[in-house]
Design a protein around this nucleic acid. Sequence first.
DNA 1: TTGTAAGCGTTATCAA
DNA 2: TTGATAACGCTTACAA
Lengths: 340, 340
Amino acid sequence: MPAPARGAATLHDVAREAGVSLATASRVLNGSTRKVAESYRVRVQAAADLLGYTPNLSAQATARGTTAVIALMVADIADAATGRLVAGVARAADEAGLVLTVAVTAHDPEREIRVVRALRGQRPRGLIVEAAPADGPDASTLTAELEALSGTGGRVVVIGREVADVPAVATDDRAGASALGEELAGLGYREAVVIAADRDIPAFEARATGFREGFERAGGRIVEVRRTGVSRDAGYDAARALLEAGLAPGTLIFVVRDAVAIGVMSALRDAGRAVGADIAVAGFDDIPSAADAAAPLTTVRVPLEELGRRAVQAVLEPDGPGEPALAVEVVVRASTPGRR
Amino acid sequence: MPAPARGAATLHDVAREAGVSLATASRVLNGSTRKVAESYRVRVQAAADLLGYTPNLSAQATARGTTAVIALMVADIADAATGRLVAGVARAADEAGLVLTVAVTAHDPEREIRVVRALRGQRPRGLIVEAAPADGPDASTLTAELEALSGTGGRVVVIGREVADVPAVATDDRAGASALGEELAGLGYREAVVIAADRDIPAFEARATGFREGFERAGGRIVEVRRTGVSRDAGYDAARALLEAGLAPGTLIFVVRDAVAIGVMSALRDAGRAVGADIAVAGFDDIPSAADAAAPLTTVRVPLEELGRRAVQAVLEPDGPGEPALAVEVVVRASTPGRR
DNA sequence: TTGTAAGCGTTATCAA
DNA sequence: TTGATAACGCTTACAA
């Protein structure tokens, strides 16, 4: 039956209740190096329990000059791939005893800037940025804003690419896409359409490039590259357009994101085309719904949770080993049956 | 080119730079009621811009005695339904100028308690709780912890049910499920299996109950109620078990969550059964992947973003209108074709 | 209208 | 080991 107190017990209250000084109370409840007599120790602890004391993090932060906050900025938190990433970040943050604050930008460059500025007010220990197009008119403003955050002592870590000399944590998308291309060519596919992103996002570019390399190396040919948005609906629309232009049976469609690939498959299904038997589709990410889609989707599994975990690690130990890009793994499913 | 400063410019720096007092600087940059001479105003603003000043939120919080933080506790942030909810909360929080902190509990009662306690340290303006089983040995401890948080001035809002006399914001799941049951009976289904949750989560219970009411009222019959976990895999396994026990063609399976329903459909597909034509499946939530699953899933659309938005509203204006439960909407798709 | 100064809840330095 | 007390960065009476 804790907290009979009104309006949050303060350290002062605890000290008075225990009959010790503020300093002593602080030492037993929060201070690191223990050097308080056992008798005092228990008295203070008892008082704290009785009053339901919880340190005021804001006050601790202003006094200590450092917070226990880690911030994360994402484009769309309802996105499945993002969800997996956030889960990894959240878990690692929790394990490190940090509070996680999340901000979403909705792919809006102006919001990105606004958000970083707002987050800066928190003086976070670090900021993990997921949504960062490589270029565009606002890119330099964003970079400046990120530097300002660094200036307050927060480590900025960008997922998937280097911003200026901001450290990055990444997956080996190019190698994974290449392996996928090779494997699918080995399965008998000869012609492929690539659906890439209409934004300059390095990870997506690496996937398109890697796929081309692997597929061509193994004897395949890219017949078209189409650029679309990164949503499920964008994929649906792109597939409709492809269908209208005529899509030969046996064609393979490689999509740089599962979310988009799933839209593609649904469009094919709605048009009466059999995904797999007729048109093959492959994606990238291995989001949870990939295996349950119109056809179980062949894709490349990205260890997003681990990526998130590494990002917080990079924030916490900036001079860490500087791990290499995380390996990804090709997962062949029914959406790309063998054609031999 | 902002922030030439080292280690974060402070209000003090700005005041000195502008040649005014701390108080004046505070007034123009943060204070509410404007009463600073225009000339000073511009000088201070200029100094702030020059130095790249951003108020230290922690310091503001300790001085003001109130924070600009809203906290959210969820069971699984990678879950699709949760993602939609979080998106709504995030947007509303942003609009209200609040920072959002997120904590995940992984359905672990002990973690729930730990998390609330940790969050309490932040003295958030409010806490939105998504993951709250109605009962269990730890329920009262959780309640006590939530009350402790209230004691520090934070408003606790629970999604989907009332905890003690904590206000709740909810959707009308029972009515929605009932409408779904009726509609499906109207489509010609006569026998249904219900896959419910193995936890005592009010929303899921309401869905099971509502469905039974509607389905039976319209002449249907529930032949079995099976309880499982709330994940996709739990659904997959449940369907396997159902198949082993024998599943008559024409049977309808109602699942209280889309995520689980999608697992069910995949299990049916993997077993060579045609979802829709052979076995019908219906879910609840309308998560993004529902329309793209093994068969487009009939479900009940829950306005989760709006729910999240309302939750922050409830935090901000505790004596608000006390809105009624949000309406939900039946969405019939191919997984439950008419059987006339 | 502006500035001085007393807090806000903690931490940390420095005597005792 | 313990306890005053000066910070921490900011807000806000209260004076000037």
